[in-house]
């Protein structure tokens, strides 16, 4: 569907973009860099301007998408970049959210403080649990992280200080700095969520470009080879896991800044599964692809489903199935201009 839509109007960006996907990533291509900067700038501008013309409900939706997208990026850091598929990031997402909520209720409504405490708590839990979890890999790692997610979920379900199964309610509206004016309006809260999202994306991008990022891709592309070369992969995996945990925690604080409520249902298996599938849908390994994946998943589930009484799950199911066949490399890997290299017989 998307392929045929993008048929007309070829652009320079596409031509270079398509060929650059196999390139080594040296910095001697000024033109695509320029184009990507323009694209990035355009996207930022749109994101920042949203509260000027979106009503409170859609702006809240946009904020939830950004918070969820940051969770998805943290999943991608492990799944796509490091090759460790995970269902456990909801545990750290929840940790960040609950920590932020508790800080808000019992200490201070400062969003900055909540962000710091939430991400630190999540990173710490990720360090402790990751220390054992990253010893495994592949589908076993997937199941161990599923266990981590479910255990935290069930703990939250019965732990009275966070409201147990009823959820943590009564979180006061955030202010930016301690003692500041509380932000009540959806647009301002959205800007804070956007700030957290961009900060998280910046961290993720820096990590991916750093030597650590290179090692992470090394783990994905051939852990055995690295072992043979005498490289330790355990510290790389643990570092990636901890950073991803911190990012998921930051996403949790952003989520709760908006909803001012968090319940065990927010870190259930379905959220974990949708986060992982958003990565696959968007294109594992790129950072922006999964963001689009998250955007599509939440939009279909929360917005489109309002128009098809109770059919949100059906729409998601159809979306997933169609995406597998039409976008073999996810949204990020889609060819927007040319048809696929090997034209398929099936799809018209």
């Amino acid at each position: 569907m998307m392929r045929s839509k993008a048929q007309p109007r070829p652009s320079a960006a596409d031509r270079t973009g398509a060929s650059a996907s196999t390139g080594g990533g040296r910095r001697h291509l000024p033109r695509p860099v320029l184009v990507s900067r323009v694209a990035l700038g355009l996207a930022l501008l749109v994101l920042a301007a949203l509260p000027l013309f979106l009503a409170p409900y859609p702006i809240g939706l946009a904020g939830r998408i950004l918070a969820f997208a940051l969770l998805v990026v943290s999943v991608d850091l492990l799944t796509g970049v490091t090759g460790m598929p995970t269902l456990g990031q909801v545990a750290y997402f929840g940790t960040g959210a609950y920590a932020a909520g508790l800080v808000g209720i019992h200490m201070d409504s400062s969003a900055v403080l909540q962000l710091l405490v939430g991400s630190a708590a999540a990173a710490l839990l990720a360090l402790l649990t990751g220390a054992v979890a990253v010893r495994t890999s592949g589908i076993v790692f997937l199941m161990v992280t599923l266990a981590i997610g479910e255990l935290v979920h069930r703990f939250a379900d019965s732990f009275a200080p966070v409201g147990a199964s009823n959820g943590l309610a009564g979180i006061p509206p955030i202010s930016i700095l301690p003692g500041g004016e509380p932000l009540e309006l959806a647009g301002f809260i959205y800007w804070w969520v956007l700030a957290v999202f961009l900060l998280g994306m910046a961290v993720a991008t820096l990590v991916v470009k750093s030597p650590l990022g290179r090692s992470m891709r090394g783990v994905r592309d051939g852990e055995k080879r690295l072992h043979a070369l005498g490289q330790q992969t355990y510290p790389v995996k643990l570092a990636a896991y901890t950073i991803a945990g911190g990012l998921a925690g930051a996403a949790g604080t952003a989520w709760v800044a908006q909803t001012r409520f968090f319940s065990p249902g927010d870190l259930g298996f379905d959220v974990a599964a949708f986060a992982l599938l958003s990565v696959v849908l968007g294109g594992a390994g790129t950072l922006w692809g999964p963001v689009i994946g998250a955007f599509v998943v939440i939009l279909v589930r929360d917005w489109l489903s309002a128009y098809v009484d109770g059919r949100g799950a059906l729409m998601l199911g159809v979306l997933f199935v169609v995406a597998v066949y039409t976008l073999p490399r996810g949204i990020a890997g889609a060819r927007w201009r040319k048809p696929l290299r090997r034209p398929r017989r099936t799809s018209p």
Binding site: G83, P85, R217, T286, R337
Partner: peptide, 21 residues
């Protein structure tokens, strides 16, 4: 272990998807 190994791309080089988004 046979999880996806889509090659990592450094930058979002394509204007079209961003514009569509």
């Amino acid at each position: 272990m046979s999880v996806s190994s889509v090659p990592f791309r450094r930058r979002p080089r394509r204007l079209v998807p961003v514009t569509i988004g």
